Lab assay of single mutants.
Amino acid sequence: DHWHVHIDGERIRLDGASEEFIRTLEELIRRGTDARELKEIIKEYLR
């Protein structure tokens, strides 16, 4: 599956992301997590 998110107007691909990770991201977004912080979390995950 190819997922991607838009954060700060930037399109970030989440290739190979699990549904669990996507749900976690959605939860963080709902909580109002800062965009820079979200991008860091995604970069760490994709390593």
Rank of each mutant, 00 (worst) to 15 (best):
E44P: 02
D1I: 07
I41S: 02
H2D: 14
L25N: 00
H2E: 14
D34E: 10
H2F: 06
G9E: 04
W3T: 13
H6S: 11
E20P: 04
R11H: 15
I7E: 01
R13W: 15
D8W: 00
K43P: 02
R30S: 12
E26F: 05
S18Q: 07
D1V: 05
R36H: 13
K39W: 11
L25Q: 00
L14M: 06
E19R: 07
L28K: 06
R30M: 11
R13M: 12
L25R: 00
L14D: 00
H4A: 04
R30Q: 09
E40N: 12
K39Q: 09
I29R: 03
G16S: 10
A17P: 07
E26Q: 11
D15R: 10
D8S: 06
V5P: 03
R30F: 07
R31K: 13
Y45F: 12
Y45P: 01
E37W: 12
I12V: 11
F21I: 07
F21T: 03
E27M: 07
L38F: 02
L46R: 03
I41R: 09
I7Q: 02
D1R: 06
D1F: 07
R30C: 08
E37Y: 12
E19Q: 11
E10V: 06
E19L: 13
R11P: 13
H2T: 08
L46A: 03
R11W: 15
E26V: 09
L38Y: 01
G32N: 07
W3H: 12
K39S: 06
H2Q: 13
L28E: 05
G32M: 05
V5Y: 02
I7L: 10
G32Q: 05
R36I: 13
E26M: 08
I22K: 15
T33N: 04
W3Q: 15
G9S: 05
G32F: 03
E40Y: 05
L14T: 02
D1K: 09
K43L: 13
E19F: 07
H6P: 03
R31Y: 06
R13Y: 15
E44S: 05
R36N: 14
E27Y: 06
L25D: 00
D8G: 10
I42D: 00
K39I: 09
E20A: 12
L38C: 01
R30W: 07
D8A: 08
L14N: 01
E26G: 07
E27G: 06
E27H: 09
E10L: 06
E26A: 09
K43F: 14
